[in-house]
Design a protein around this nucleic acid. Structure first.
Lengths: 134, 134, 134, 134
DNA sequence: GTGGTCTAGACCACT
DNA sequence: GTGGTCTAGACCACC
């Protein structure tokens, strides 16, 4: 089962964001491969019982990020892997989370080694859950 | 001087949050010890030239977290926070940040080693800044 | 007049795209500076006589590109300049236009020097027109 | 062999477009000269193993552009296209591409010199490919 | 059938 | 007041 999208309504994480994240992960982890088709806007909307616009919005964001490409009239397909963002921008985008984690870790007296182990475990576990607290 | 609070007005981080963070850090790093007195609401407000309500709000949050205790008639004192949180509770509190970081890291294609290095650097950097709310 | 947005309805270029392009240009040419506010979603919608959602969509795209940042409750502001895309990605995005131009130029017997002059003139002229054929 | 047409099926560029482009190039580069005969619709369809309708459509477009002329009973011949387009018309036709390129270049922060180099490279590369529709 | 765009109107959260 | 999200339904273009 290469792509099993699920959403949680009423979550602080918007639905479209949940979809984006899950497809993003599926691509990053290799669950879906370049050239693979992603569900159609209408099909996804029907399956998840959401408005087609919401599904379209998720896909629009993914397309904007260069992760998928649309072939008009045929559907949307996963693009070839490539580095889109500069190293500086990637660091910039993950920085707030690093800072927040470091602050909380210091406050809760977690040491670097403990953190490393926990983050490694988390990386392995990630990608199954539709909502991880935005 | 065990506690040297400074604030930055006009920051995206509310002033009360800045105070909470700094006292939190001071406690976590041992700059202030359990049983030490913290400034009175009025004294703090006067020193930082802020509204007493703002200082009170900061202390309310700290007391809610169990970090300080008021001894009526004597003032506010740092409690021994090691007694407060179990290991499970500490993990529970840092978990959402770990998850969020792991997800973002996977999406931005940061490997575990890169993450470890960035986390360590961030931990070292943390605690010096009056404003560290992301 | 730092920012004079106009749109052309019924154009092949979608309205939201026209807005994105114009703000993008204004930023690239220095007409608006980092930290400057951009019109509010509702204000822009009213001025251009479009649906607020359409304006919001344009801003969402600009924010996704890292060009503007939203300060909740305050408005949207132009971000600091930074390189977001890798060189390879920037080339990749301009490539189709280069190819199309080169083909047309060969067919119409324009030489490289003529092209250089025309493209330079076009660069100087660009940015005033809301629609330039998408 | 003045005209060696090849097509790529399954390409995003329709077959008729590929034919138009290649004949267009052959004419522009002098591979075929005004007055030269071009293959008949039937002959071309047979050689390329395509539907005669597709070949006819390609020729219809070329004739519409004034590039070829049919001499009833004799076949189709390359017309002298230098007589057809005035300088103003040539500029008018390439203008939209110049504008689009200039806009995109400004947005992606490509300077004039970089653009000139990329254009020159693209011109050299053009014409060899059976599929060059962007 | 596919995606893309736009409108209209609702609700939320933050300040 | 600000932005953010979601729904509903419409129309277009492409295949």
């Amino acid at each position: 089962m290469p792509l099993n999208l699920t959403i949680k309504t009423g979550s602080p994480t918007p639905i479209y964001r949940q979809i984006v994240d899950q497809i993003c992960f599926a691509a990053a982890t290799g669950a879906i491969q370049p050239g693979d088709a992603v569900p159609s806007v209408r099909g996804l909307a029907e399956k998840l019982v959401i408005n087609p616009n919401t599904a379209a919005r998720a896909y629009a964001e993914l397309r904007g990020q260069g992760l998928i490409e649309s072939q008009p009239g045929r559907g949307m397909f996963l693009s070839d892997r490539r580095d889109i963002l500069t190293k500086a921008e990637r660091v910039r985008r993950i920085r707030p989370l690093l800072t927040a984690l470091a602050r909380q870790a210091v406050m809760l007296r977690f040491g670097p080694d403990e953190l490393h182990k926990m983050i490694d475990r988390e990386i392995k576990a990630v990608g199954q859950r539709p909502d991880c607290g935005g």
